[in-house]
Design a protein around this nucleic acid. Structure first.
Lengths: 208, 208
DNA sequence: AGACAACCTGAGTTCAATTCAGTTTGACTG
DNA sequence: CAGTCAAACTGAATTGAACTCAGGTTGTCT
């Protein structure tokens, strides 16, 4: 499990980078990126606003970093969950379940990722932002490929009817991530129930 | 007073409101809301930037108006498409098809709507923006209810297995609208093909 | 114990959005 | 076929949040 992945061994002992990321995830996740003042994040961490620029080139650079880390985590979890599955339907189920096996912090990260996905479309002016953006874009494609190739393997084995695996993969992925647009931990339906419903939906979509 | 206005009874004959909306949809839809300068929209229409404030209280007010109009259209299209359907499966298919029967301008509007959906979560400071936001939110709920009640009718008739209609509705809707995040008219796959694939997916999800 | 890199700060600067203080335009009236 | 007046517009000034600058402080390591 990559639980402490937000901490980087390359950082100095006094570094507040991790604290900034945690604070930013909380504020961006609850109020949204645009309506969160960058200085609020500084206040939350207990430093002046200009100190933020010691760690991130800009507010957008911080956001892109959060998005990249979350995409990396999603991909890692997918790979880990599907690694030792031989039956295509079980592999599919495991992949869906891995997408919903998340902490409250990770829910916020998914929400931030989904809400700001369109940021990845246009190039960034500054170098470090652009590096993060390109890395995030590649991870998006990697996650898409994760799903596509899972579907193609299942089709090749005859476990799933043959369809356009790419479009079907995007549809499945789209349905799964759309949950983070409306789900709140305080809601009436527990996440486990949503996860089960989506799992069954995906199986019917793909395997029938 | 009693004179009949052919274009729009609310607007004066010299009004550029419609032109501003068209220009804003094009710019927000192609480059994204954040990376589009409000003055670019003014340039496109051929007026000074300050003239925009004669029609919209702010850039966000314009965006919220675009989103509300698109939500209204989506709801209207759903109602129209499903009005005279008696068979639940046919009604379901008609609903999905209506979601993809869109012009290029409407594709941009859907893209804008999906990319900025989270703007509807937090209250706005100004009155006119807040009015648009609340109207848009209510339309979101109306569209969700459109799908939920279609599913519930089908379940009541025994055409669909009984499941949590609300969560299932959100999943279906989420899958459909997720297309606007990646679809581009210049892409390799035609929209008609995507529409057909999604239609079959929805039918398997709901009716099996 | 002192060098020095990491870390931090208050005082500016920037730039897009927005407000202000009026001026122009043209549809409608009389 | 003037005169009126609200709609439509403008250039200049203001705002505010993101960001830069020119240094100051702190903890770690040798």
């Amino acid at each position: 499990m990559a639980r402490v992945r937000i901490v980087d061994p390359e950082e100095g002992p006094r570094s507040k980078r991790a604290a900034i990321l945690v604070a930013a995830v909380e504020r961006f996740g609850e109020d949204g990126y645009e309506s969160t003042k960058w200085s609020e994040v500084a206040d939350r961490v207990g430093i002046g606003q200009t100190a933020l620029y010691h760690y991130f080139e800009s507010k957008a650079h911080c956001l892109l970093t959060i998005m990249r880390l979350e995409l990396q985590r999603s991909h890692d979890m997918f790979v880990e969950a599907t690694a030792d599955q031989s039956d295509p339907v079980e592999e599919l189920r495991a992949a869906v379940r891995s997408a919903f096996a998340v902490s409250e912090q990770e829910i916020r990260q998914m929400r931030i990722l989904q809400a700001n996905m369109s940021l990845l479309a246009n190039p960034r002016k500054s170098k470090r932002e652009e590096t993060e953006r390109v890395a995030a874009r590649q991870l998006v494609q990697m996650v898409e490929r994760d799903w596509t190739s899972l579907l193609m393997r299942g089709m090749a084995k005859g476990a799933f009817p043959v369809r356009d695996a790419h479009t079907l993969g995007l549809a499945v992925l789209g349905m799964i991530v759309s949950v983070w647009r409306w789900y709140r931990p305080t809601g009436a339906i527990p996440l486990s129930e949503i996860s089960e419903m989506i799992e069954e939906c995906v199986v019917r979509m793909v395997a029938e």
